[in-house]
């Protein structure tokens, strides 16, 4: 047992320092493409760290959203940037020297070191044992409608936060559309191998998504993870040139984007009227309500992430500047 603990500690140390080292290389390397690749690697190592910290739900979210979709967004933006920016085109990916004067750089560094020291001191002053809210969560878990505590917190105990969270997602797509115009996906690469790969993978992804959604009630998983897998399946289909949706004006797609937040609001209003408190589910029906919310949220999250990816691929429409 002792030996296992030692190995685990060694692994933790290696993982922690790798994370820091990767972040350092990512942020201070002169090659943007390399930075993005390092970012994705960083995200995957973060996912391992979440597993080590007994947070498998966060690990799933990190791997799919943090590393996967953010990575896809960054790659797609970088490809676009390269067509816009000549300095990036010329093979040797660029970087202008740091703009700061050497002295300013050292001042910034000194400030960072001091801040790190202060924060580290504060962290180390925390008690080594603290129950947090774990007792409260565990004692109320039975009346939450689900047996997986993370899902209970997200969808029941702190469901109001998740409602606002869905509003943030809706805002993000509204924002990207209003900034970038609303045209369809741009360039498409097809290849027979990619097509076969996608034909095989997309049903599997959809199945995995449904599984994660279902399993979220009693094990790691849930709407955010399921939604991001669904979004990933969509991204693959779009990349292979499938005319998935006409994202431009589709009423259906708007409905899918709104479904999750709308379900939350409808249920909040319903419970406000019936129970007197927003998102207070009657214990007997809590499981059904949560499953309904999660299903619609999964659809919305998947569609939003896909639409963010497609939106970031599009050319910006020259905006009307008559007021400026």
């Amino acid at each position: 047992m002792e030996a296992v603990g030692l190995w685990q500690s060694a692994f933790d140390l290696m993982l922690g320092f790798s994370l820091f080292g990767l972040a350092w290389r990512m942020l201070f390397c002169a090659d943007l493409f390399k930075s993005i690749v390092l970012f994705i690697t960083f995200g995957l190592l973060m996912a391992i760290a979440w597993v080590r910290l007994e947070a498998p739900d966060v690990a799933l979210a990190e791997a799919t959203i943090g590393a996967g979709l953010t990575g896809a967004l960054l790659m797609s933006a970088f490809a676009k940037l390269r067509t816009l920016d000549n300095s990036l085109k010329s093979g040797q990916p660029l970087l202008p020297r740091p703009r700061l004067h050497v002295i300013n750089f050292w001042i910034a560094l000194l400030f960072t070191v001091l801040l790190t020291g202060g924060l580290a001191y504060a962290v180390l002053s925390l008690p080594s044992h603290s129950p947090g809210l774990s007792d409260a969560v565990m004692s109320q878990l039975d009346s939450s409608g689900v047996t997986h505590p993370v899902t209970a917190v997200l969808l029941n105990f702190r469901g109001y936060d998740t409602l606002l969270e869905m509003a943030v997602l809706l805002l993000s797509i509204q924002s990207v559309w209003s900034m970038a115009g609303m045209s369809d996906a741009g360039e498409v690469h097809t290849s027979p191998v990619l097509n076969v790969l996608i034909q095989l993978l997309s049903p599997v992804l959809i199945l995995v998504s449904a599984y994660l959604l279902w399993v979220g009630a009693h094990a790691p998983g849930g709407a955010f993870q399921a939604g991001s897998i669904l979004g990933a399946a969509g991204v693959l289909l779009v990349l292979s040139g499938r005319p998935l949706f006409n994202l431009k004006k589709s009423w259906l797609i708007r409905l899918m984007l709104v479904a999750g937040p709308a379900a939350f609001i409808a249920l909040a209003t319903l419970t406000l009227i019936n129970e007197g408190q927003l998102l207070k589910y009657p214990v007997a029906n809590a499981a059904n309500y949560i499953l309904l919310l999660e299903t619609l949220a999964t659809v919305s999250i998947g569609t939003t992430l896909l639409a963010l990816f497609v939106g970031s691929q599009t050319e910006a429409v020259q905006q009307d500047q008559s007021h400026q």
Partner: peptide
């Protein structure tokens, strides 16, 4: 099996 599939496909795409 999934890793085999993805690995083979992606390697082909990178090489191509």
């Amino acid at each position: 099996l999934l890793v085999l599939l993805a690995g083979a496909g992606v390697s082909y795409l990178i090489a191509n």
